[in-house]
């Protein structure tokens, strides 16, 4: 219900007589533009690099498997495992960066808005709803970063593919760099999954902290 794109756009027209949590989050994110841009672009770069490396890795795997005779199969499998290992390490690094970036942004946002959260609680917003606000905000950041990062990642992978293919047209003596990038649906889904998981993990602590605020104490906050 909350992530209906059309209603999200329509919400900004007063004639619609609609005001929901999406509107509240949108206003909050656009108010702190610099922080939102920095967080979203940082995460988008991580997602783009994830897509780039995975696409190059998939391409390389395909390239090697297509050219490996049965006697070299064992060596190919070793290489493939090594490659997968490195990709897993890279993925873990990206997830950590994502979680830290989003959690940091959310914690700053919550400490800046203590009085606001106290007011919301005073006028009837429950702790569970405050938790939802924080999670929705984190998912909005990672969702936007995923869209930008995916487009950037695909562009980078295609760019690398183009670059390496044209560089290699003179011969094949330069080794694995000539493997064409392969952008798969699985890579995109993995990036989406990582974004959701990272967004959720990052929002956990800030959400619990925001929900546990005592309204009277939060209202006294200067």
């Amino acid at each position: 219900m909350y992530f209906n794109l059309l209603s999200w756009i329509k919400l900004h027209k007063d004639k619609q007589k609609k005001f929901s949590v999406i509107d509240y989050i949108f206003r909050s994110l656009t108010e702190h533009k610099l922080r939102t841009y920095l967080t979203v672009s940082g995460i988008a770069v991580c997602i783009a690099l994830f897509i780039l490396f995975n696409s190059l890795g998939e391409g390389l795997n395909d390239y090697i498997s297509g050219r490996t005779s049965s006697e070299h199969l064992e060596r190919y499998e070793e290489m493939s495992e090594l490659l997968d290992g490195w990709l897993n390490v890279l993925t873990s690094v990206f997830v950590i960066i994502l979680v830290v970036a989003v959690a940091n942004s959310m914690l700053i946002s919550i400490s800046e808005r203590q009085r606001e959260l106290g007011t919301l609680k005073a006028i009837g917003i429950t702790s569970g709803q405050v938790r939802k606000l924080v999670f929705f905000e984190a998912w909005a950041i990672t969702g936007l970063a995923f869209l930008i990062g995916t487009l950037l990642g695909i562009a980078l992978a295609l760019g690398c593919d183009q670059l390496f293919t044209s560089a290699g047209s003179g011969g094949e003596g330069l080794g694995w760099f000539f493997a064409p990038a392969k952008i798969t649906f699985r890579t995109i889904i993995s990036a989406a999954f990582i974004s959701i998981v990272a967004g959720t993990l990052a929002a956990l602590y800030p959400a619990l902290r925001a929900a546990s605020l005592k309204p009277a104490e939060a209202l006294r906050y200067e």
């Binding site: 005001f19 509240y24 108010e31 007011t119």
Partner: peptide, 24 residues
């Protein structure tokens, strides 16, 4: 204690932001 990012009307509505559309 108004919410600085919201308009006057949205500030009045803020306690209803989790309510179903028909009630809003």
């Amino acid at each position: 204690n108004l919410i600085p990012t919201l308009t006057a009307l949205e500030n009045v509505m803020v306690s209803r932001m989790f309510d179903p559309e028909s009630e809003v």
